[in-house]
Nucleic acid binder design. Structure first.
Lengths: 250, 250
DNA sequence: AACAATTATTGATCCAGCTCAAGTTTTTTA
DNA sequence: TAAAAAACTTGAGCTGGATCAATAATTGTT
């Protein structure tokens, strides 16, 4: 528990308007004028320990979450209690949309390491929508982006295990880059098991492929620390036509 | 081309307020008072022939579509031009959300038979959102439902081919029922190829499983005409624990 | 620092479903 | 209504990746 620096009493407290994630988080695409208003309603500096849940599947929708630091896995449970890793959320990204459809979460959000997050309460969203019409649109866009991401994931499921792992590495790299982190060297905060679950392959296969990539000098892996050594070839591998014959449709 | 009954000149023209799909389409969950307003902005009675595209991937987002009759497949194309069937849309359901994230469609919507649809123009959505705050929320809910549906689809990808086909049949049945159609006997408007593509299995496998189900007296199939004879057993098949060992997580 | 628990690696075997192939039926077009 | 095209069925063999198994490396705990 961090009990230092009570942000609320400091004059230059972080708000949406001056947050370093302001053009990635909710405000991205939101008119400057509306960011201030948003800032007043967001609850900041919430914490969750590694392994803890930010929200549980089945619990009522409490609002949209913006990750400030740390990463999260979004999991769904089937009838037998098997976990499906739906997505990984990185700092600066939003989560919670799985609760909007029927005011109850379909997924559980679990911290992969200690996370710090902001929280836009559900009750305020609709109220806010009237005053700041841009917000509705931004939220709608974000929620649709989630859909798009899932479509991309489906596309990936037609490719070989190699291609999936290559794509996964490149995708994480890309997202980190966008958020100002190193794109060629980073820590995978999720386990092989979680990666495999997410990609739809066995964790043994993930391990094998990661080491195959290392043998081919495409990456360097030491436990969870990853270094990309040949981005182009990784990309080629991902783009290579491994699946069934290319059927040209009209 | 149907040139009879110019609806606009008939006094009792169909609007959202008196449409027979009113509690399935956009108005579902929308306050009665706002339905009237919506009705004024929707373009009705648009047609698209079998095989035609309602919109193309890459084209600018023009609005949300509500299917009145006929069904549609939503496809995405990978870099090599291979088709991925993302979803099937049935009468009374909405489509177009794949265009909201960045004002350009990510998917192509193709009519599986002649379709009739309503169209809520993009330009009007944001304007309308200010006047009828409920609309934003409804749209947000719908778009998130799409996300949920994709998560369900991902779950399905961990199951055996049999379970996927069983689930597919039950899912279509359920959606048709909700819309007032017969739930135990209906026409599959999509080809085996499209079903297989959607489910991530070869079309030969779809065919084999459908006939296996018929041999077991679970269904009766004649070309595209399907009759469910044993819903319970189909459901059990879908719910049966085929995948990897049940790991109980904390 | 030593122990325990979790997570990762690596090998060997096996099978669900893919691919290829060759008819058959249904649908479309002329 | 017949011919052509498209969609569907059914068989046979092959393989990518799952599963099982046994060790090794991390990570967390006392």
């Amino acid at each position: 528990m961090i009990s230092l620096s009570p942000a609320s009493t400091i004059k230059t407290a972080v708000t949406c308007a001056n947050c370093n994630l302001d053009n990635l988080c909710i405000p991205k695409g939101l008119p400057r004028s509306e960011v201030g208003e948003l800032g007043l309603l967001v609850s900041r500096n919430n914490m969750c320990q590694k392994g803890g849940a930010i929200y549980h599947a089945g619990s009522p929708f409490r609002g949209i979450i913006a990750l400030r630091s740390g990463s999260v896995k979004l999991v769904s449970l089937d009838s037998e209690g098997n976990e499906l890793v739906v997505d990984f959320i990185l700092p600066g990204e939003l989560l919670g949309f799985d609760g909007l459809a029927n005011d109850r979460h379909n997924c559980t959000a679990i911290a992969l390491e200690t996370v710090n997050y902001c929280h836009l309460p559900a009750a305020k969203i609709e109220i806010l929508a009237t005053q700041t019409p841009g917000l509705s649109h931004v939220l709608l866009q974000r929620s649709c982006s989630q859909f798009d991401a899932q479509v991309q994931k489906m596309m990936l499921h037609r490719r070989s295990a190699d291609a999936r792992v290559a794509c996964f590495i490149l995708h994480i790299s890309d997202r980190l880059k966008q958020r100002g982190y190193a794109e060629m060297e980073f820590r995978l905060s999720m386990s092989r098991e979680e990666i495999g679950n997410y990609l739809g392959i066995a964790h043994e296969t993930v391990s094998r492929i990661i080491h195959l990539f290392q043998d081919r000098d495409l990456i360097e892996i030491k436990s969870k620390q990853l270094k990309i050594k040949n981005k182009k070839e990784l990309f080629d591998l991902f783009a290579t036509t491994t699946p069934n014959s290319p059927s040209q449709g009209t």
